[in-house]
């Protein structure tokens, strides 16, 4: 029998890191407001795809949930955690943009309004299945039973008073074709979500840099007391907004210069990353991904046509 016990102990030890990585621990960040801070790595079976900060506001009418997470399983655990933490029922879910780690938990909230703006809802309807498939490939078993459930209710811009909280929904596109930030005037918390990355390299599969910069300027002008980024720790000042802007500027200038020098994409992937970004989560991997998403446009601009249009 001791052998068996030893065996079990070993198994527990081996499983410990897995459980720890998936432990969902809400932090109270402001009155009525909680956040779950996620892993700043990449999608893996170990993190179950939980890479994005989750937040919820317990209003007098019920809980407003910002983002539903990367999978059905996650969404179900998350909803229970919300209800246990706040002692209140969920009022509605806000989907800020179309990326899969933000909406694939929707199935767990199908009995309440799941709100997103019309553009995001349309893109999730069109691309959701493909986005879910990609996560299945990367995360594996943790995705079991997950389907792309599109948002079920409209999300209007502007201010809405919900159970004693004055929430403003602000259009800040650029990270994708349509992104919404939420500002709680009552607590001073700005949920910038994926417009702002803190100590984690921004992801750019659908980025429009000009729009994104404009949106960052808009966010910096919001009189917030606390900023919740999509990835990385919360901040009391605009440092992460400036840092995200700095990264986008560097990326833009570096890709333009590489194309002007005639570098092939594989050569651009190997370019050095400045010290101030190199220690951010997934710095090299996201740089490589961004080359795939963005570099073609810069190459196109740097190569003159040798023949006229037909």
């Amino acid at each position: 029998m001791p052998t068996l016990r030893l065996c079990l102990a070993w198994c527990a030890l081996l499983l410990a890191p897995l459980a720890a990585a998936l432990e969902l621990r809400p932090q109270a960040i402001a009155p009525d407001t909680w956040m779950l801070e996620a892993d700043t790595g990449y999608f893996t079976p170990q993190n179950g795809g939980f890479l994005v900060n989750m937040a919820f506001i317990a209003t007098d009418e019920g809980v407003v949930v910002i983002g539903s997470g990367p999978s059905r399983q996650f969404g179900e655990r998350y909803r229970k955690l919300i209800e246990d933490t706040t002692g209140k029922r969920v009022l509605e879910v806000i989907i800020t943009h179309k990326h899969p780690d933000h909406f694939l938990g929707n199935q767990a909230f199908r009995d309440v309004p799941i709100r997103a703006d019309a553009k995001t809802t349309a893109m999730i309807k069109a691309e959701g299945e493909g986005l879910a498939e990609n996560l299945y490939r990367l995360v594996g078993d943790g995705m079991r039973g997950t389907e792309a459930l599109a948002p079920t209710a409209p999300l209007n811009l502007g201010v809405r008073n919900i159970g004693g909280h004055r929430l403003e929904f602000i259009a800040v596109p650029g990270h994708t074709q349509s992104d919404i930030a939420v500002f709680d005037h009552t607590t001073g918390v700005l949920f910038a979500i994926d417009q702002v990355f803190n100590q984690r390299t921004p992801t750019l599969p659908n980025a429009d840099l000009a729009q994104w910069r404009q949106s960052l300027a808009q966010l910096a002008a919001v009189p917030f007391k606390l900023l919740v980024p999509g990835h990385g720790p919360v901040s009391r000042d605009a440092t992460p907004i400036a840092a995200t802007r700095d990264y986008l500027d560097w990326l833009d200038a570096t890709l333009r210069d590489a194309a002007e020098r005639g570098l092939a994409p594989t050569e651009a992937m190997l370019l050095p990353i400045p010290e101030r970004f190199a220690h951010w989560g997934e710095a090299r991997a996201e740089w490589r991904r961004s080359i795939g998403f963005m570099y073609g446009r810069y190459e196109r601009a740097a190569l003159p046509w040798l023949t006229p249009p037909r």
Partner: peptide, 24 residues
Amino acid sequence: WNSLLGRVSGRAWREDGALRVRLG
């Protein structure tokens, strides 16, 4: 595609000991 098909773009760079040519 009617206006794009077969359109060629390109540029050359002189670099140590070689001529880097990009042709699309």
